[in-house]
Structure formats: structure tokens, C-alpha cells
Lab assay of single mutants.
Amino acid sequence: NITNLCPFDEVFNATRFASVYAWNRKRISNCVADYSVLYNLAPFFTFKCYGVSPTKLNDLCFTNVYADSFVIRGDEVRQIAPGQTGNIADYNYKLPDDFTGCVIAWNSNKLDSKVSGNYNYLYRLFRKSNLKPFERDISTEIYQAGNKPCNGVAGFNCYFPLRSYSFRPTYGVGHQPYRVVVLSFELLHAPATVCGPKKST
């Protein structure tokens, strides 16, 4: 009989979030998941669920729940959905087409922007091929755009693959930082360890 609440607040209220290319994953298990708490945590810009209804979450049980978190800019949030393409979905964080879970995003301009520009958040701009779903690539190998090998040196047709967002508070919403948490629900042929409040007794 599990009584402890799932530590969603640790994920959502973390002081620092990860850069999207090096997104963070927390496995959540053996706890009571009260998803209604999430609705009250922040004024969400996005709370979209796929393959599951957000209002039914509190009635369900899962084997595992994974919470992935990272920062992107406002106009990239739409890429965090099944079947999307674009720089983020292709080279940084890719959801599977049959994704079961929820994408939660909110504006973090007050936390993640600086007047002089916050350069701490990076994204991958160049990659030889698209990522597979939930693949994480943290390599910093020089990207070869031409025929000549780069031998690890940046220059003509040889690019450092990561680029930094420079978040400034005066930017338009599309270029402001957004914190994203992706909850993916895993149903294996194994005992369910993460249940809503109704199912945990």
C-alpha cells in the first residue's frame, strides 16, 4: 500500500533546468501520483496529453512515469509533440509517434532571462542524422558540413554543433524561455507502482 506522493514538485520547481540537447530525465515510481497538483503548480502555457485524457490521469496506474525536463524558446514548444519536425524535434528531443503522456510548458522569462542575455541554455544546431525517439546526444564533436574532414577544428564548413540561446527579458514571447516537462507513461507487463490517489488504497 503506497502512500508517499510522487515528487513532481522537485521536477517542476527545480531551480535550474537542463539545456534541451542534454535534457534531464527523472524516473518516478512507487508513489501516489496526484496530477491535479500539477494544474495548480504554475499558470501553464501548455498542458497537452496524448493517448490519455488529462482529467482521467488520477484514475490510472502505470509501471513507471518518466519526467523529462529542459528549456526551449516559446515558438519551439509546438515541436514537443508526436510527429513534429524542426531543429528541436530533429536534433535535441524527439517524441515517438505513439507517445503516451503529457507535455507541460510554461513561460520562464522571469527566471531564465537576463538583461545582458542568459547564454547558459544550449541547443544542438547541427547533426548528421535525426534523433530516434527519446535519444539523447550530448556530443560536442565538430560538425563537418563540407567534404573536407574537420579534424576537430572549427572553421570553414566545420561547425561547433551547439548554439546558445541568449534569453533577454525584452524579447518577444516566441523568443522567451519556456520550461518544459514531458511526462511519459510506461505500461509494462509488470506491477503498477505509480497510481492516482483513488487507485492507491
Score class of each variant (00 low, 15 high):
D34C: 06
T100S: 08
Y159M: 10
S200I: 12
S108F: 02
Y50L: 01
Y165K: 05
D59L: 07
P96K: 02
A154Y: 08
V181Q: 00
I80A: 02
C158Q: 05
R73F: 02
V173F: 11
N58D: 12
R78T: 13
I28T: 01
W106E: 00
Q176S: 05
N1K: 09
A81Q: 07
V180R: 00
F126V: 13
S69D: 02
A190F: 08
L38K: 04
I80Q: 02
S166A: 14
G86C: 02
C61W: 08
L162C: 03
N147W: 09
T15P: 14
T55Q: 14
L188N: 15
N109I: 07
E10G: 06
V180N: 00
L187I: 12
L5E: 10
V20A: 05
A192Q: 12
P169D: 12
L187M: 14
R179D: 03
I72G: 01
S113E: 06
I80K: 02
G172Y: 12
T3R: 08
P197S: 14
R73G: 06
V173H: 12
W23I: 03
V180Y: 01
K198I: 12
Y171E: 15
P7D: 14
F156C: 10
N64F: 09
C102E: 00
G86Y: 03
N87H: 15
F70R: 01
A67V: 10
D137T: 01
Y159I: 09
S108W: 02
F44R: 15
V52T: 08
N24T: 14
Y93I: 03
F47C: 13
A22D: 12
L131M: 06
A42M: 11
F167P: 06
V32K: 10
R168L: 12
G117H: 08
F167V: 05
V182D: 00
R136L: 05
I138W: 04
T193R: 11
Y123C: 06
T3N: 08
D137Q: 01
K56R: 12
I142S: 06
A145M: 12
T85F: 02
G83E: 06
T85P: 05
C150G: 05
G117W: 04
D9L: 11
R73I: 04
G117Q: 11
N24W: 00
V103T: 01
P149I: 09
I2K: 13
D75L: 05
A192W: 10
Y123V: 07
F134K: 04
T170M: 10
V11S: 03
L95N: 00
G196N: 11
E76Q: 13
Y171P: 11
I2Y: 13
V182N: 00
P169H: 10
F160V: 12
R73T: 07
S116P: 12
P177F: 04
C31F: 07
Y39G: 14
N120T: 15
Y143L: 08
I28W: 15
C102R: 00
V20P: 08
S19H: 08
P7M: 08
S36Y: 04
Y171I: 12
K114E: 14
G174K: 13
E186W: 08
R78Q: 14
N92S: 02
N4P: 06
W23R: 01
G51H: 07
R127Y: 02
Y91D: 03
D112R: 00
R78S: 15
P43Y: 06
T46G: 06
I104M: 11
H189K: 15
Y93L: 02
L188H: 12
T63C: 07
P82Y: 00
C102Y: 00
N120W: 07
R73W: 02
N151A: 12
Q144M: 07
F160W: 13
Y123S: 09
I2D: 12
I104V: 10
D90W: 04
F45H: 15
I104S: 00
V115K: 15
V103Q: 00
R168T: 12
G83F: 10
C195H: 08
Y93R: 01
V194I: 10
N130F: 08
G101N: 00
I2L: 12
N147D: 14
R27Q: 11
N4H: 11
G174V: 08
F44K: 15
A18F: 05
S19K: 02
D98V: 05
Y91R: 06
C150Y: 04
V71E: 05
G74F: 01
Y119R: 15
S200M: 14
T140E: 13
E135K: 02
F99C: 00
G51P: 00
Y119T: 15
A89D: 02
V182C: 04
N4F: 07
P191L: 03
D137W: 00
R136K: 11
N40A: 11
P191Q: 14
D90M: 07
R179C: 06
V182H: 00
K110L: 08
S184I: 09
V180E: 00
Y121I: 05
K198F: 13
N157G: 14
T100H: 10
S108G: 04
Q79V: 01
Y21D: 05
L38A: 03
T170I: 08
K110N: 13
I142D: 06
A42Y: 10
A190V: 09
S166L: 08
Y66P: 02
N64E: 13
A190I: 09
A22W: 03
P7G: 10
E186N: 12
W106L: 04
Q79F: 04
V180I: 08
P149R: 11
N13A: 05
T63K: 14
D34N: 09
K148I: 12
L131I: 13
F44S: 15
T55Y: 12
L95P: 02
V37F: 15
L60D: 07
G172K: 15
N92W: 02
E141G: 10
S164Q: 13
F160K: 13
N151D: 13
C195G: 09
D90L: 06
Q144K: 08
R179G: 03
S139F: 01
Y91T: 04
V173E: 14
L57V: 07
F70W: 01
N92K: 03
Y171L: 15
N107K: 06
G174W: 09
Y91F: 13
A81L: 02
F126E: 10
Y119K: 15
S29R: 09
F126I: 13
T201V: 13
K110Y: 08
T46S: 14
F17L: 04
I80C: 00
P96R: 00
N157S: 11
D97H: 09
A33N: 06
I88H: 02
N40D: 12
Y39A: 15
A22Q: 09
N30G: 08
T140I: 08
N157Q: 13
V153A: 11
V52Q: 04
N64H: 15
A14I: 05
A22F: 05
P43H: 09
A14L: 05
A81E: 06
I104Y: 11
P191F: 05
N130T: 14
G74N: 03
R127E: 05
R163C: 09
F185Y: 09
Y171W: 11
A18V: 04
K26H: 07
Y35M: 14
D59S: 13
Y165I: 05
V103S: 00
F134M: 08
P197M: 15
H175C: 10
S129Y: 08
Y35I: 13
G146T: 09
F44N: 15
T100V: 14
T140P: 06
N107W: 05
K148D: 12
N151Q: 12
V37H: 11
N109D: 09
